[in-house]
Design a protein around this nucleic acid. Sequence first.
DNA 1: ATGACCATGTAATCCGTTACATGATTCG
DNA 2: CGAATCATGTAACGGATTACATGGTCAT
Lengths: 190, 190
Amino acid sequence: MSLEHVLLGMLREPASGYDLRKSFEEESRHFWSAELSQIYPALKRMMERGWLVCDAAPSERGPKRRVYERTHEGTSALESWLRQEPVEGRDRIAYIAQLIFLGELDDGVATTRFVESLHRHFKSKLTLLESALDEMLTSVDGNIDALDATGFHEYLSLQMGIAAYSARVDSSAESLALVAERYTGVVKND
Amino acid sequence: MSLEHVLLGMLREPASGYDLRKSFEEESRHFWSAELSQIYPALKRMMERGWLVCDAAPSERGPKRRVYERTHEGTSALESWLRQEPVEGRDRIAYIAQLIFLGELDDGVATTRFVESLHRHFKSKLTLLESALDEMLTSVDGNIDALDATGFHEYLSLQMGIAAYSARVDSSAESLALVAERYTGVVKND
DNA sequence: ATGACCATGTAATCCGTTACATGATTCG
DNA sequence: CGAATCATGTAACGGATTACATGGTCAT
């Protein structure tokens, strides 16, 4: 049950459900996301459990906002989640299943197309993460020590994401070469 | 709705629900898994849809087995899934959320412990994948060209997994050094 | 006025996990 | 006799997506 803890973590500053969904889309897209229809009931439950308090606030335009704030109990619930072991999600990687079962077709063109598409996808994901890192680093003139604790931890997580995607970019390119070699007899000389 | 396509892919040979769960546990653990309570109804739906036929078979011990086999329709449903674009699952990586929100604690010990634990976890995952690759390679005396099409595609998928986990192992080690530097002032000389 | 954005929510449905229910065989 | 393994399922619950429902403001 991680969503509620993620919401707690995002509530450094008081925010409404609508705000939180925007944060998911703008900042946290690379590690978590949730729809409003999931966020609103979650906030309600968390309030009933005493993790949040809710404050009505007027809005510039549109209906009145409900702004949520962490209580001490909420903060300590977050802290005990953070001090747990890393939470591992289940691996359900459909594209790996597809790649394996493509073996049955034994069709070089199909496999090539597939791996090319994977490669493009990994590259675009990598670009996103890299530009987030760039932005963060230019904001402190390339000096990591100038980051505050939150910035530093964000930096670590971006590094890990970049490393993982960069490896995937490279290995999909290598796979492409192997596929070409196997199905067309072309051998790259290096 | 990928589970049913994954089951189709695994039904190269006729198999029962029980067999399929064993395959998930023994072979496919690193990219997919499912419980019997999910598999049995899925097989039933697939049969009603005409993707499978079911044959009753006696068993060595225990109740009689229901062995499922792909129909032409099932095979072509699989094929059109394989010829789609790679299916990307949504990213919900709880441990990245934890790492980022640990910034709020600003506690070097907590972050160190966390990243160490991540590192261990990545390493053990990597070891699993590497031994699967080893096993596959020794079965053909290190000669990739001797793999059949299915083996070759499995090889590609293992390579990608290994690359991704190996990058994570390295980057978590680097993170550990950065954390030590930031929180204890110790600088590694290289 | 039409559409984009602000802002809240509920309901139906789907996918997955855990727990329950049943019963035969084999090994220690 | 009890535990493990073979083998089939259903039911209850929880988490996530999609669709539905409502209504205000602002810019074109």
